[in-house]
Design a protein around this nucleic acid. Sequence first.
RNA 1: GGCGUCGUGGCGGAGUGGUUACGCAGAGGUCUGCAAAACCUUUUAUGCCAGUUCAAUUCUGGUCGGCGCCUCCA
Length: 468
Amino acid sequence: MLRLHNTLTRKIETLEPLKRSEVSVYTCGPTVYDYPHIGNWFTFVRYDLLIRLLKHMNLKPVWVLNITDVGHLVSDADEGDDKLQVGAKREGKTAWEIAKYYSQYFLDGLDRLNISKPTYTPKATDHIGEQIDLIQRLESADYTYIIDDGVYYDTSKFSKYADFANLDVDEQQAGVRVEFNPQKKNSTDFALWKFSKASEKRDMEWESPWGRGFPGWHIECSAMLLKYLGKTIDIHCGGIEHIPVHHTNEIAQAEALTGKPLAKIWMHTNHISIDGQKISKSLGNTILLEDVEKRGFSIMALRMLVLESHYRTQSKFTWENVKAAETRLRSLYNLAELRWQTVSDNDSGPINYEEYIHLDITKPLLDDLNTPKVLANISQHESLISENLVTHKSKPSFLKYLSAIDDCLGLDLMKQHDISLEQKDLIIKRNAARVDNKWAASDRLRDQLKEEGVGLRDTNYGSIWYRY
RNA sequence: GGCGUCGUGGCGGAGUGGUUACGCAGAGGUCUGCAAAACCUUUUAUGCCAGUUCAAUUCUGGUCGGCGCCUCCA
């Protein structure tokens, strides 16, 4: 069974799904006001690894990945330009246009990285009614108060507020760097509904029982989670930075109303760093998918790079290691291409692929998603498998092995096609030339294949081709 | 100030109380008509100081240092 680190208990725990064959998963999605950088993508690939593993275990994940398309405040200070508005201003468009464009870009990006399709990708703006309803229920239960700029959640009314993140609320207050609205009762209180200023007309604003305005950031996740997955879910995922604020607030909102645990397991992914610093726009070190391609690397190499570190460690991004990942990926593609070159379609080799699938892939993944270990295991057996394929007959089992890797890691090893009949013919002609010691003709044919992206290595068992 | 996390060889990055992680890069070599991203070998790795132990990179304490969060952030 799957064991995962649970932030709730700070321990590795066994997943025990609430339903027999279904696992509910909520992952905090992007705010769609700009292009996601590779750090953002790392996180979504990691969510995908969890989803893929659940499927591999024959469980049915019900996965909600929300799209935050409501602008939220750039800062908690009163000056409330929101991120969507900032994006809109920058590009001379409306907040709605910005949200639409970057939502689509994000969804396309999921495909480019071969990330599984979530069961639901609800947008915050499509659930304003549900959010208002939740706030009303919190209001009825006496968890809210109203000040000049909005409706706030009174965190002092939720006794377990500090538990999840082990917060020392008083000490936190001492170190804060921003100006709070002085009307707030507690420093940790947060907005459920923000009022539009009477003087301004926002691109995104709605009528509510408390007046014209827009929802706070945290309430959207609670509203969509409750709507699509219910009061208690199996796994709630998010970036590590959400522990003290966003997820703490989600728990406060939902559990205050339901009286039940919001999630059984909280899984948090760590960040990647560049040159020892986090990735952020203000530091000017963001890298986009397009930048990866501009440097001549494939998007799948980036996916490989994600797999090379554990989701809970703060890993380091370097171009040198994107190259290393690309090389490693290529080597696996070459291995996969041997499926077109096996001696026979029968199964009689000495390798127990079922065992490899279990020990090399499934087992380390079930142990808190240890992808580096999986890659190490695969690499360790690569030479043996490679040699076995050209000397023995084990194609059906080998195909199962490749499928297992693709299912769990999403590297698309099975995507490449066989080489063409013409190319195969060139290989036959070259070998005929070699038999006749016609080395010039032989090399000419090899060069021709090379131009078409096909390399050759001559072995005792014949010429093996591989793609560049 | 509070909370958290990490410190492994040129780079990245796992596991482990006593035996090779793994990948990339570098070096040497083998096979080959020549080649090959093929094969083999290889380079003072576990921040520092104590403690526990027959034995610690792995446990405990301390210390130094990095990073993250506490403000929107994956």
